[in-house]
């Protein structure tokens, strides 16, 4: 643990990445969210010391960074798995079985919603509407992969796929060469 205050947690490369956002906004505080995202992407969490260092770069107080961070249910303080997967539980997904899919995934992985598997590979969480209702009941991985419409079998297959390595950034952005309208097939039964 880098708890020693003399050792900075954020490397110069990360700091430069954060500083690169500063010219985009009229004041430095507006970079808080981008900075939190950068730190989260690198550490898979946002520890307190990182918040203090972000505050230093942006010339605001650590409390202000923490205030913003804690408002969003997005930034964990302990590292999450290599892949984070959200299973939707909002209306369109729930009435087509979203809650059951979440429960199935949790049972299969032996974790509760919001927890990470013991091997550190996968964090499973519920989500309120992911905006992919055309795939309902749907799940979204934090590397952009969309799964749906889910059935218990498809949840199993999804877990298998997610436990493999992270999806390299797909040059076609998951839309294939011809981005025709997505026509997800409806599960039988």
């Amino acid at each position: 643990m880098a708890s020693d205050v003399t050792t900075p947690m954020l490397s110069e490369a990360i700091r430069d990445k954060i500083r690169a956002f500063i010219p985009r906004y009229p004041n430095k505080r507006a970079v808080t969210l981008p900075a939190l995202h950068i730190v989260h992407e690198y550490f898979r969490c946002v520890p307190y010391q990182a918040m203090a260092e972000i505050a230093e770069i942006l010339e605001i107080t650590p409390a202000e960074v923490h205030d913003t961070m804690s408002f969003y249910g997005f930034f964990p303080q302990a590292p999450i798995g290599d892949v984070r997967v959200w299973i939707c539980r909002s209306l369109s997904c729930m009435i087509t079985g979203g809650d059951e899919m979440l429960e199935h995934a949790c049972k299969k992985l032996g974790v509760r919603s919001g927890q990470t598997t013991p091997d550190g590979k996968l964090t499973v969480e519920f989500a309120e509407c992911l905006g992919i209702c055309d795939f309902a009941p749907a799940a979204l991985a934090d590397d952009g992969r969309i799964f749906g419409p889910l059935t218990p079998e498809k949840v199993d297959a999804m877990i298998e796929e997610l436990k493999k390595d992270k999806d390299p950034v797909d040059p076609t952005h998951g839309l294939g060469s011809s981005a025709g309208p997505a026509t997800p097939s409806r599960p039988e039964g």
Binding site: M1, M9, F43, C45, P47, Q49, V111, P118, G120
Partner: peptide, 20 residues
């Protein structure tokens, strides 16, 4: 875990820690 009514093995602490 017990409050949820299900008994699952407790997850291991995360493999990597921040800063490492």
């Amino acid at each position: 875990v017990a409050l949820g009514g299900r008994v699952y093995p407790a997850p291991q602490p995360a493999l990597r820690s921040p800063g490492g």
